[in-house]
């Protein structure tokens, strides 16, 4: 490297607000909540690496946990990504997804958001259905009326077996409702889905990527890695 004066180049930045919305209801107890803690801890350095060479992107992260009530797990002040650490999360009783959305919506208010930003990322991770379905629908409706809420990259991850989650409810949260719900049936899948969704959403929101055609969404989110399933009765030869 040279000791000569260097050109006064500077990069102008935009903020990217990333919110984790994490279910810690009683049903998450045991392997699920442990895997979730582990997965988010592992995802942070991967997100950091994904934007390391994009100094124009300033990622600010927060987390909301919800059971019988929703509250800040990390926040309400946003934490720069390079300082963000994930406090271990235990479990509690209910699944107040609605209140979590309300809390998030409060932070997506135009007055609280940056003057210049990238689409925010909202990652909802839950293993059950909202305790109060009506209130959940209303909270989601409200989120989608906010300029930053409707432009957010919203991804839900459903944890556990099919009968345990409410797929329709979680899919309604997704910014791309056509997309299949991300599912995690076991520990390995949960870790993989959390890492994929958090990294892919951050990159899709901010960094310019090659496009393959006309976009149908306001960000270009790649397809999730494909999975196939073997079920007891898989049907006839086709």
């Amino acid at each position: 490297m040279s000791s000569h004066p260097t050109m006064p180049f500077e990069v102008a930045r935009r903020q990217l607000h990333f919110l984790w919305l994490v279910d810690y209801s009683g049903s998450m107890q045991g392997a699920k909540i442990q895997a979730l803690n582990q997965a988010i801890r592992e995802a942070i350095p991967e997100i950091r690496a994904a934007v390391a060479n994009h100094p124009e992107v300033e990622v600010l992260m927060r987390a909301i946990r919800f059971s019988d009530i929703a509250e800040w797990h990390v926040g309400p002040d946003p934490v720069p990504l390079d300082q963000f650490t994930w406090p271990i999360l235990g479990t509690d009783n209910y699944t107040n997804t609605a209140m979590a959305l309300e809390l998030a919506a409060g932070e997506l208010d135009v007055a609280k958001m940056p003057r210049r930003g990238f689409p925010p990322v909202l990652l909802l991770i839950s293993d059950g259905e909202a305790s109060d379905a009506g209130r959940y629908r209303a909270a989601l409706q409200n989120l989608l009326t906010l300029p930053w809420g409707k432009r957010a990259v919203r991804i839900a991850i459903g944890i556990g077996q099919d009968h345990q989650i409410n797929e329709r409810e979680l899919r309604a949260f997704n910014s791309d409702v056509e997309r299949p719900l991300l599912r995690a049936h076991n520990v390995a899948e949960l870790v993989e889905q959390i890492k994929w969704a958090s990294t892919a959403a951050t990159v899709a929101s901010s960094a310019g990527k090659s496009a393959t055609g006309q976009a149908t969404q306001n960000v270009l989110l790649p397809q999730a890695p494909a999975h196939v399933m073997l079920i007891p009765n898989g049907g006839d030869v086709f």
């Binding site: 049936h185 890695p225 399933m229």
Partner: peptide
């Protein structure tokens, strides 16, 4: 139920519990 991934080796088909 056994799940496979097209992206790699078979998943552990063991549920969370």
């Amino acid at each position: 139920m056994v799940r496979l991934s097209t992206q790699g080796r078979p998943q552990k088909g063991v549920p969370f519990e």
